[in-house]
Amino acid sequence: MLSYTIRRCVVALLLAVSVASLVFFALYLVPGDPATMLLSVGGVEPPAAAVQALTEELGLDRPVLVQYLDFLGGLVTGNLGQSFANGDTVWSMIAVRLPRTLELIALATAISLAVGVPAGLAAALRQGRTVDRLFSFTASVQMSLPVFVVGTAMVYIFAQRLGWVPAGGYVPLAQDPARHLVLVLMPALAISVGFSAIVFRMSRATVASVLTKDWVRTARAKGLAEGRVRRWHILRNALGPVATVVGLEMGGLLGGSVLVEYVFNYPGLSGFLVTAIENRDYPQIRGTVLVIAFLFILLNLLVDLLYMLLDPRVRD
């Protein structure tokens, strides 16, 4: 068990180094001078002085290997560089926005699990019957609704037409808890439309497959009450694959929440990334991408470890 944990951690670490290297060298994959590329807008050649200034600022004139080691060293000490925009450190700007995005994702996940798992179980136990067909059809409609379409519709209907909620924005929890909740809930619900459908489908499929297993028949042959069969021999065995999918989806949301943050004007990390791209703020882009990718790797590691707790066969 310990050996498995250590192995997974080492793999995650190696992966993080690979990802960081890929992100670093991505700049050099683009043909031409990196500084020129970063400054050129719409094919217009930037002034040489600006290019020179940027080259010095980013230290692009140093040997690539030195830059690379410097970059890795910075990562270890938590130094992601300085933003072009206002000279703040990249990390300080991320640190403000990251918790907001994480809160949004956590809420969306909670809603999706609360809806998707029970619905999936109910549908799998009634395969082919009306409830199952209704749920399954609803889920495939939900999965066809892009999050920005849902979000835009929600803003239009609930904020602009009905005026029940503000059109978007963000208020810290300490300042106004109720308003804070509403403002997080709207984008979280928009995400949950698709997310809960994915959780539902996975739960339904896994439960349906566990239902055919011999040990479920054994449990019934023992004369166990139906409730115990469902909880201990069906749901308990279906959790692993569901956890994997939820983990992957949450990881996807780390970057994917960009759309919903944009629609709801929610000042999270991913929406911030769009601004950074529009401003061509390279250090900021690179830092944000790295932080998100690292979180993604960490999340996968947690899912792997959770899987280990759920399935004793993985432990040995």
Partner: peptide, 21 residues
């Protein structure tokens, strides 16, 4: 595959767009 999968798709697309336009 592992390395590529460590990037959420939209994020990767954003990074590339940032570089190449």
């Amino acid at each position: 595959s592992d390395v590529l999968l460590a990037f959420p798709p939209i994020l990767m697309a954003l990074l590339v767009v940032a570089l190449f336009g």
